[in-house]
């Protein structure tokens, strides 16, 4: 393993932004190259942790067996340390999102330059994985997110063995994402989405680490036999039931993500924030599995509180 300084940015007053990659493997001919990126925003702590755990896993295995890795693995656990280190989500000076700046521009603004330097380091890989969080305040079961386009690789996404593969329609904002630009450049690219803006959930982190190891094993990048994981269901907005809160107030969930629910089951309560009275009982509208759940106790009217993947694709 080589810990490699991929690029550096000088700050006016604080330490330099040094972005490191952990490069593994023997680059044997005929074996693929994979790059894994997380921590493009300062709230993707769970993603950083999972990527770092994969670094640790590969380092241990490679130490025991120098031929453990056939292809090449480049892991970049964190890009935006400046935001991570001060509790910000985006680039701290101008609040711009690195993950809408791809493929980047070497003569552009700071985050365009960061995206450019990052993309230069990872664009020529066969596989690309982005570990990211959701923009909204939601805890979700780890899932694979694909943008519905000609580049989408559903069969490849099944190699992760996660329960759900979610395909979403292309939106203009996707044009600047790493996921989309990787695909345009010719890589098979996937996004792993899960929770952990403020807390780490061991179960979810273990699932994501297992999924990453499974993927690189199935593609023979490492010499390891793994279990098959889930037979992934491919879902889109058509088979996800959106449950919204009709009232604002204090939200208390009754169920957790990953739980099976029945139509009509009470799954959450909204209380009046001043009087403490119940303002709304929230019920499941169909049978299914709770894949995402609103994660903040303060809730707005019409906020999506639950996403339920419906059984039998009803």
């Amino acid at each position: 393993m080589i810990k490699e300084l991929l690029f550096s940015f000088k700050s006016p007053s604080r330490d330099d932004l040094n972005v490191y990659g952990f490069r593994f493997g023997n680059k044997k001919e005929g074996y693929p190259k994979i790059a894994i990126v997380s921590g493009m925003n300062g709230e993707e702590i769970a993603g950083v942790f999972s990527a770092a755990q994969l670094v640790h896993f590969l380092q241990e295995r490679e130490t025991l067996d120098p031929n453990f890795i056939n292809g090449e693995v480049l892991i970049i656990p964190s890009v935006n340390h400046f935001a991570l280190n001060m509790g910000k989500r985006f680039w701290p000076l101008d609040n711009t999102d690195i993950n809408v700046m791809f493929p980047g521009y070497d003569k552009g603004e700071t985050t365009q330059r960061i995206a450019f330097k990052l993309f230069e380091a990872i664009k020529d890989f066969n596989f690309g994985i982005v570990i990211e969080d959701r923009k909204d305040k939601a805890d979700c079961m780890p899932y694979i997110r694909l943008i519905d386009s000609n580049y989408m690789d559903i069969e490849g996404a099944k190699s992760f063995g996660l329960q759900f593969i979610h395909t979403k329609k292309f939106e203009p904002v996707d044009s600047g994402s790493l996921l989309y630009n990787w695909e345009v450049w010719g890589a098979k690219a996937y996004s792993i989405v899960f929770s952990g803006k403020k807390y780490l959930f061991q179960t979810e982190n273990d699932l994501v680490l297992d999924a990453l190891i499974r993927f690189i094993s199935i593609h023979k990048i490492i010499n390891l036999k793994v279990s098959g994981g889930y037979k992934s269901d491919v879902v889109s907005h058509e088979n996800v039931e959106i449950v919204k809160s009709p009232k604002a107030g204090i939200f208390k969930p009754i169920v957790k993500t990953g739980i099976q629910v029945r139509e009509g089951q009470l799954i959450g309560i909204v209380y009046d924030s001043l009087s403490g009275e119940v303002k709304s009982h929230i019920h499941a509208k169909s049978d299914g599995i709770v894949s995402c759940m609103y994660s903040d106790p303060l809730i707005f009217q019409q906020t999506i509180v639950f996403r339920i993947v419906k059984f039998n694709n009803k």
Binding site: K247, A248, G249, I250, S273, L274, L298, F300, Q301, Q302
Partner: peptide
């Protein structure tokens, strides 16, 4: 749009 604590957006 109703906000959580005694206010409307």
């Amino acid at each position: 749009i109703e906000l959580p604590v005694s206010e409307d957006f």
